[in-house]
Design a protein around this nucleic acid. Structure first.
Lengths: 271, 271
DNA sequence: TTCAGCGTCTCATTGAGTGAGACGTGACGC
DNA sequence: GCGTCACGTCTCACTCAATGAGACGCTGAA
């Protein structure tokens, strides 16, 4: 195998004190380091900060950052010139998570949950203000299926997963999203009033799971629970959906433990 | 997919026009291309497939793939030696999605406006004498879409957004920019005469919105309104663009209130 | 066995990345 | 208004890491 034995250039005949902290400066490594830094930062980052944090010379930091901006992986904040994540990065991220879920061991988790519940289950994340389905296992061929396959997007305010994400968001972000627009009434049950929605989010946050009682599609009931990262943050969600004749409030307590077990098994997949 | 539009046609350092071919081969670009390819693939990929798909020489493909594997961004399927997404990539993706949350409000608003109008909408800012698109929501059903993806830059003097920015700029800066001509004639309708352009800017400033009647792309009509900061300054703009058969002068009064509502919602995001 | 296809290794070549330094610019503080 | 400062941009010579053709080895199929 020999992982590229070039770990230390000519360690032999090393008369000089080999400075261990002098790794080779690979452009690609640094580029990924920048991307990861911006992705893990709590907010917009100044290029200077990036440079000092990663120990990059000033022009180099700018060159690499601008390269990422050209690719759309990073972007600049409107008012400040700080660096934020770009839209291409979000696209890439969704693809990555989708691909990482298609790996066999994980796939079986969702399948097992779905089999145990006897209903259609899916896994989704929040991207750009709506819910994206990363994976999905269907049990049956009922007519309402397939409108929402893998990769499709559904609104936040009227789906179990979406409301769950909203409920677990930091306060500032939640209020900004709640302020970001009118909420379309998909059905007669859709919560369109911001106050009513806010109250529902409180309930969801308190009890740790989310329901959708015909709020998006008439006759369809959903239950969603969060998938937590190792730091305890909600990074994704797993949900079951079924026609209301088969799944409704009275069965929630029954499906929750099964969903939660699945969520726990999946959480390893998200760091 | 893959906007890749930012080819930087700037030609600033272009020595001679004879070099038609662009043998630009940046290691970082190719690395990201590999990552994206694996992320968007339906299953595990052979290195050979990656190489041929991206046009990489055999050893190069292996080197880059192994580099990504060393970083944990890719991994190998255990039985087949095929390439799959690695756990680090999933971690990175979660971070990206979290970090890109700050864009969500803008996107939500844009999507709502676009849905209501049934046409492609975008948000842009002024940057270095160009209009740069920050975000964009497209409607799928018309073929000539997509020329201008997120991050791409368009001129100021012949686009609805650009003229809007020009019109709302402080006098000194406007005259400086106007003096920086010449203004290329993109179509027969493009305003290239500084005086005519100045008159147009007066009109725009007076009525508070801006139009582009085939001034940049033949057959395309645009309407743009400003997004104001809390201090009343124009910090960005929201625009709708559509083929002229569907959007023209007679529909302006109809789309304006919808655009303005979106602009107002976006303004709130800067409070 | 022979063949074919894929992964690995080598190595001369070169050009992309590098970073010190100079310069431009905008934001404060006084 | 005027220095001051700090960040961003530009330039340019250097050099090191990436490049890719070619040779080689492995494994599995005919």
């Amino acid at each position: 195998m020999k992982t590229h034995s070039t770990q230390t250039p000519d360690a032999a005949t090393a008369n000089v004190p080999d400075d261990a902290a002098k790794p080779k400066a690979a452009a690609t490594d640094r580029t990924f380091a920048i991307l990861e830094l911006v992705a893990s930062a709590s907010g917009p980052l100044a290029v200077k900060t990036i440079g000092t944090t990663l120990g990059l010379p000033k022009p180099t930091a700018h060159r690499l950052v601008n390269g990422l901006i050209d690719k759309g992986l990073l972007a600049r904040d409107l008012e400040t010139r700080d660096v934020i994540i770009g839209v291409e990065a979000a696209r890439l991220a969704v693809g990555i998570l989708r691909a990482s879920l298609s790996r066999a061991p994980v796939r079986s988790v969702l399948r097992a949950v779905s089999a145990e519940l006897g209903e259609t289950c899916n896994v989704g994340v929040l991207d750009g203000g709506d819910v994206v389905y990363l994976d999905r296992v269907e049990v049956e061929h009922w007519p309402l299926r397939l409108q929402f396959g893998v990769g499709s997007r559904v609104p936040m305010h009227c789906t179990a997963m979406g409301k769950l994400f909203l409920a677990t968001l930091p306060d500032g972000m939640r209020s900004r999203l709640l302020a970001s627009g009118p909420f379309s009434a998909q059905t007669a049950h859709t919560l369109t009033d911001p106050d009513a929605l806010a109250a529902e989010l409180e309930r969801i946050a308190a009890r740790g799971y989310s329901l959708d009682d015909e709020e998006y599609v008439v006759g369809v009931f959903c239950v969603a629970v969060p998938i937590l990262s190792s730091t305890g943050r909600t990074v994704a969600a797993i949900a079951v959906q079924a026609p209301k004749v088969r799944l409704s409030h009275d069965r929630v307590e029954q499906v929750l433990p099964i969903l939660r077990r699945g969520a726990e098994a999946l959480s390893a997949q998200f760091g």
